[in-house]
């Protein structure tokens, strides 16, 4: 066991992948000399050189598109986009090309591409650097959407993602990078599919992913001290979505709260809530509740940003309102 940051767990995974397979390379804005805008790739340029740790011009559409092309050409690119907000400049490439190519070519061409990006708020970066848009991407068939919330997943998801013959988008919540935790020295690949129960409890199921997992766990701690047993399910993968794990938990607890940093309307939380009502309606003792971000562009001022984001207290209130 070594204590590492989430950032270091990601870095080790990239490093390992590059050591293991020379088709793997990293590209993106300032991944090399600068060390990555969130310092994930710090030091990799020195180890692997500018060919495999490739600084790109500011041109999200171009370098994501080039990643697709390189993947088609037999490489295993890891493309870093600085934040999900900037990935919108590459939306066309991701949705119209990467996700559709295999289908359009009747299976002749696949895109074994991994795109990593930061998502989420909490650092007072305001309305163009803070949104949680992974739920949009989860709408798109042809993409695999991952949201590692733990160090095991941060270090273990990359390699299997690179083995996936189709495009994978990996969302790293910005509030997690500095979080320190134990990581086994032999921590290896993890399965990409399947939600995980991060905490057991019998009274209510709280579903979370990525940056909302710590929020859900904090709420569970508080409720636990009051004698309410909260089961916390970490979705881990947003597409495909493991509704079965959520449903089997709800079948036991009879209550569900979904925590999602995306906006509520048309969100991933809506999808999860639908699945629960479709598959566990008669097991529910109360309607499914949701705790999401306020439907505003993210404000800068700290107190407004806090007010806009799902907080542990909101989760606690939601659980109480269900009569758990």
């Amino acid at each position: 066991m070594t204590v590492v940051t989430y950032r270091e767990a990601l870095r080790q995974a990239i490093r390992q992948a590059m050591v293991s397979d020379d088709r793997v390379f990293l590209m993106g804005e300032d991944v090399g000399r600068y060390g990555g805008c969130y310092a994930v790739s710090l030091g990799l340029l020195q180890e692997f050189g500018p060919d495999r740790v490739r600084d790109t011009p500011l041109s999200e559409s171009a370098f994501v598109g080039a990643g697709i092309g390189a993947a088609l050409g037999g490489m295993l690119p890891i493309v870093e986009v600085m934040t999900v907000n900037f990935s919108l400049l590459a939306l066309d490439q991701l949705v119209n090309t990467a996700a559709a190519l295999r289908y359009m070519s009747a299976g002749q061409f696949g895109v074994p591409l991994v795109v990593r990006m930061t998502t989420g708020a909490g650092r007072q970066l305001a309305a163009q650097h803070s949104h949680s848009l992974e739920g949009w991407y989860a709408h798109v068939p042809g993409l695999r959407i991952l949201a590692p919330a733990t160090h095991e997943d941060a270090s273990g998801m990359l390699w299997p993602a690179l083995q996936d013959p189709d495009p994978v988008l990996l969302f790293e919540h910005g509030s997690l990078y500095n979080v320190r935790a134990d990581l086994a020295d032999d921590a290896g690949p993890v399965p990409l599919e399947g939600a995980a129960v991060r905490r057991r409890g019998d009274d209510v199921t709280v579903v979370a992913y990525g940056g909302t997992l710590p929020t859900a766990l904090a709420a569970a701690d508080q409720l636990g001290s009051e004698g309410i047993g909260v089961e916390v399910v970490d979705l881990r993968s947003l597409r495909p979505l493991d509704a079965a794990t959520v449903v089997s938990s709800v079948v036991r607890t009879h209550r569900a709260v979904v925590v999602d940093e995306g906006w509520r309307t048309g969100s991933l939380s809506a999808e999860v809530a639908s699945r629960v009502t479709e598959d566990a309606f008669y097991d529910l003792d109360a309607p499914v509740a949701r705790v999401c971000s306020a439907e505003v562009p993210m404000p800068y001022a700290k107190h407004l940003e806090d007010a806009a984001l799902p907080q542990p207290a909101d989760v606690v209130a939601a659980v109480r309102a269900l009569g758990a």
Binding site: R264, A286, P287, V291, A294, D314, A321, L322
Partner: peptide, 12 residues
Amino acid sequence: PGAARSPSTGPA
């Protein structure tokens, strides 16, 4: 909290 952050329903 605004309505969008409150639980979607009232008490069970």
